[in-house]
Amino acid sequence: MAHKFEIYKDKAGEYRVRFKYNSEVIFSTEGYSDKSGAKRAIESIKTHVGDAEIVDAD
């Protein structure tokens, strides 16, 4: 699979999610105190990304 979500623990001990495409990090989330928060973030992204507005800041 060329894309995936990864849950990892940062240096501060918080759980974060990063989305990778072809091994390149596309984005990462804020930190969560527990892994369940990171998992909820993934589910929220999957649910709402199709509705995301596109803004051209140019």
Rank of each mutant, 00 (worst) to 15 (best):
F5H: 09
R18K: 12
A57H: 08
G37L: 11
A2H: 10
Y15V: 03
H48A: 13
H3N: 00
S28V: 05
S28N: 03
S28H: 05
Y21R: 05
R18F: 00
A52F: 08
A2E: 06
A41R: 00
A52H: 04
D56P: 01
V17N: 14
K20G: 06
K20T: 02
V17C: 07
Y21S: 12
Y32N: 00
V49K: 14
K4A: 11
Y32C: 02
F27C: 14
V49Q: 12
S28I: 10
A57C: 10
I54L: 11
K20M: 12
I7L: 01
K35V: 08
D58N: 02
I54C: 02
R40C: 06
D58T: 04
T47R: 15
A41E: 07
A52M: 14
I26T: 01
Y15K: 08
D51Y: 00
R16V: 06
R18C: 00
E53G: 12
S33R: 10
S28K: 04
A57W: 00
V25W: 01
S36R: 03
A38F: 07
D51N: 12
G37T: 05
K4N: 07
S44N: 08
E6D: 13
K39I: 06
S33Y: 15
A41F: 00
R16S: 07
F27T: 10
R40G: 10
I7N: 01
A12H: 05
T29Y: 10
Y15R: 08
E43L: 15
I45C: 03
K35E: 12
D58F: 15
S36D: 06
K46T: 09
Y8Q: 09
I26R: 01
V17Y: 15
D51H: 01
F19Y: 15
A52T: 04
E30W: 08
F27D: 05
K9W: 09
R18D: 06
D58R: 05
I7D: 01
A12M: 06
